[in-house]
Structures are given as C-alpha cells and as structure tokens.
Design a protein around this nucleic acid. Structure first.
Lengths: 97, 97
DNA sequence: ACGATAGGCAAGCCGTCACTTGCCTATCAA
DNA sequence: TTGATAGGCAAGTGACGGCTTGCCTATCGT
C-alpha cells in the first residue's frame, strides 16, 4: 500500500493531476483531461488519464464516486502525511515490502 | 530537479537507505550495505547500493563527503518539505490551533 | 429506440530503471 | 612495494511503467 503511494507520486503527469484536484475537487475524467490540456499544455489521452487516476486511487490519494454515467474524483492527502512522519519527524522508520 | 526527488523516492531500497541514514548519519557505502543486509534481510550488492546513493544524491536527499578512501553519506530531508508544501499545506479546514 | 456521451478492459509497443558483470583507480597497512 | 580495502565507470540484460489501439458496456437526451 505504501509502495503504491510512492509509485503514484513518481510520475509528473500524476502530480499535475493532484495539483488540479487540489484546486478543484470532484472532477470527472474528461474534466481532468481538459484542464491538463488547457492549463498545462499537456496532450494526454483519455485512456492515459484514466490509468493515472486508477494508480492514484490505488495509492489512496484519490477517492472516486460514481453518479450516473459520471465518475467524480476527490483528493485525499492523508497518505502524504505518512511521508512526513517517516523522515521529517524524529520517528522510527516504517517498513516497505 | 524536483523530478529527481520523486524518482529517488520511488524505489523501496532507496527508502530503506533513507531510513538507515535517518538512524545514523555519515555511513559509508559498505556500512549501508551491511545494515541493509543485517537489519532488513536485503541482499543488495555494493554496486547496486552505490547507484542508489548516487540517485539519492542527485535528488538532494543525501550529501556525500570524501575522507581518504572513505565516502560518508549524510541525510538531508529539506527536499521533502518541498513535497509536503505542494499538497499538504493548503490543508482542509482544521480547528486545531 | 437511437445516437451520443462517459468510462472500462486488454493486448501490445517502447522507453526507462534496477541490477549485474567486468575492469578500473585510489588509499591504507604490512 | 605489495596486497587488501573502498569506491567508480560503463556496457549489457531483464523487467516494469506509461501509452496507444481497438473494442466493449452503461447511462443520458431526444
């Protein structure tokens, strides 16, 4: 699980998606696509973004809720706090698989 | 540069190295190897650890100083604070002062 | 019912990454 | 000086990750 977190953060496009969700929660897949294109000049396909969102979801950084034919994505920054506790505070290290 | 930071954190062995340096700063390459083996049961070759340390150094997470034939590695967690400020600081409304 | 919209699934391609292998330099101890 | 120690460099390999391609299901508007 913690492994998924760092893998998720390793891709620059995924980090931009986190930025977009930080600014506006509850975006759909196409909204994320559009904002990546217009605000960052990224030509990312729908499938690519879909897979990125799946990775972010597996990492616990994004929660998704279905409403009709739409799927809205919300940001959850709580997993990031694990990073802080691991190295930024005088705390015992955690284990990674 | 920020790209290097996330790449460096993406590998579990490198995160363990950070853990070891958190516990004891100024370790040499062979010391890191030994501690990874004895404390985490990892059979990592010297060259592998050497490359990991180079990646951590490129990310700014580790600074190295040469003394004779030894090279000691020190941890620098400051780049990590940069990560946290990106998504964690515009935090959800919390009443705790 | 029909077409359009929103999204999912799976195979394949290609680049990157972690690791090995082999050989090299530099420092210290005898 | 010789041998042992500490580390570096570079090419090659295997696996994984990001992206595409093609086709699929589900929901909504008309």
């Amino acid at each position: 699980m913690e492994e998924d977190l760092f893998k998720a953060l390793a891709d620059p496009t995924r980090r931009l998606i986190l930025d977009e969700l930080t600014e506006r929660d509850g975006q759909s897949l196409f909204e994320v696509c559009a904002r990546l294109a217009t605000r960052h000049g990224l030509a990312v396909s729908r499938q690519a973004v879909s897979q990125h969102l799946a990775v972010l979801e597996a990492a616990g950084l994004v929660t998704a809720r279905r409403e009709g034919r739409y799927k809205f994505h919300d940001l959850d920054t709580r997993p990031l706090e694990h990073i802080v506790r691991r190295w930024l505070t005088p705390a015992p290290p955690e284990d990674t698989p």
